[in-house]
């Protein structure tokens, strides 16, 4: 047993897991309030990361400004996407909506590869130190930032849905659209806003991952990793999204550890989440925190 490696991987697991959790939370947000399964969630990360990269590298903006502009851009992008593409699909069967988001994801992925190329582009240096040592483990500062930002987002979400007027309106809409409408909530605004928030927060995760690994189309794979996370946690639970993300993140790294120590199969960690996903769907399809009203057939 290599304890040091295990410790390092567990820390990685928690950090990557919180990022999965944030993305899963955004995914759940869209699903909960608009009943749309967003297969293009990964592309939100990708778009955010590329836009931020372009602002920093091509236009030479300072990091904080570029970051804020990216967030504003993604907010507008989310609203636009919902209004132009997804609003006509309200009331269509679920397969059409799924296919629509899949079509969007192919479109944006190809578009971004066309504009920015296939190769990994590194982010400019934001932090002056390479890595920080905490309790004898090496951690990159961007990861610490990501952990802090993720936790901040989670607290922000908690406050937003618990106390703010719009957050309450969104919860009411998620609970029952017709009742919410009859109480004077603009369901249109809620739908647009949930896509906007989701796009914005996902892009944040995209920028953080881009800072560590560089930006490339591989980022959009996070959008697929979201499914195991969201299913484990329960599709309609925001807390579940976070928990599921953490579980999948840690699981991946433990699988990598097992793989490197004993099995040596190569890419076990990439495929393990999907086996877990199938197992969860067979045993407990509503996940850990989801509502139990799934129609059993």
């Amino acid at each position: 047993m290599n304890w040091e490696l295990l410790g390092q991987l567990l820390v990685n697991g928690v950090i990557v897991g919180t990022l999965y959790g944030v993305v899963a939370m955004c995914f759940v947000l869209i699903y909960k309030s608009t009943q749309v399964v967003n297969f293009a969630q990964g592309e939100f990360l990708l778009i955010g990361a590329w836009v931020c990269w372009a602002l920093l590298v091509k236009f030479g903006l300072p990091f904080w400004l570029g970051f804020l502009v990216t967030l504003a851009f993604m907010f507008a992008f989310g609203v636009l996407l919902q209004v132009v593409v997804l609003r006509p699909m309200i009331g269509e069967p679920i397969i059409s909506v799924i296919m629509l988001t899949i079509g969007l994801s192919i479109f944006f992925q190809a578009l971004l590869s066309w504009i920015f190329g296939e190769f990994v582009k590194p982010f400019p240096e934001v932090f002056s130190v390479d890595s920080v040592t905490i309790l004898g483990l090496n951690v990159q500062p961007a990861y610490i930032m990501s952990l802090v930002i993720s936790l901040a987002i989670m607290v922000g979400f908690f406050w937003f849905f618990k106390y703010s007027r719009m957050g309450l309106a969104m919860r009411a809409t998620a609970f029952d659209q017709q009742v919410a409408q009859s109480l004077g909530i603009s369901v249109k605004h809620v739908f647009a806003l949930s896509w906007a928030i989701s796009a914005m927060v996902s892009s944040l995760a995209g920028v953080v991952i881009g800072m560590v690994n560089g930006v490339s189309s591989a980022l959009s794979f996070y959008g697929i990793k979201v499914f195991p996370a969201a299913i484990v946690g329960g599709l309609d639970s925001i807390v579940g999204g976070i928990a599921g993300g953490l579980i999948i993140g840690i699981l991946e790294n433990v699988a990598q550890f097992v793989d490197s120590q004993w099995l040596e199969w190569g890419n076990l960690y990439e495929i393990v989440p999907f086996y877990v996903l199938v197992a969860i769907l067979m045993i407990k399809p509503y996940g850990l925190f989801g509502t139990r009203d799934i129609e059993r057939v």
Partner: peptide
């Protein structure tokens, strides 16, 4: 077999998992 118990979105995700698992099998 899982499809017999789940539908809609859950089925989409389960078959997505099957896609990745089979792809992994082809490589392995």
């Amino acid at each position: 077999v899982p499809a017999a118990r789940i539908k809609g979105l859950y089925l989409a995700i389960a078959t997505l998992a099957a896609q990745f698992i089979l792809e992994d099998f082809f490589n392995r």
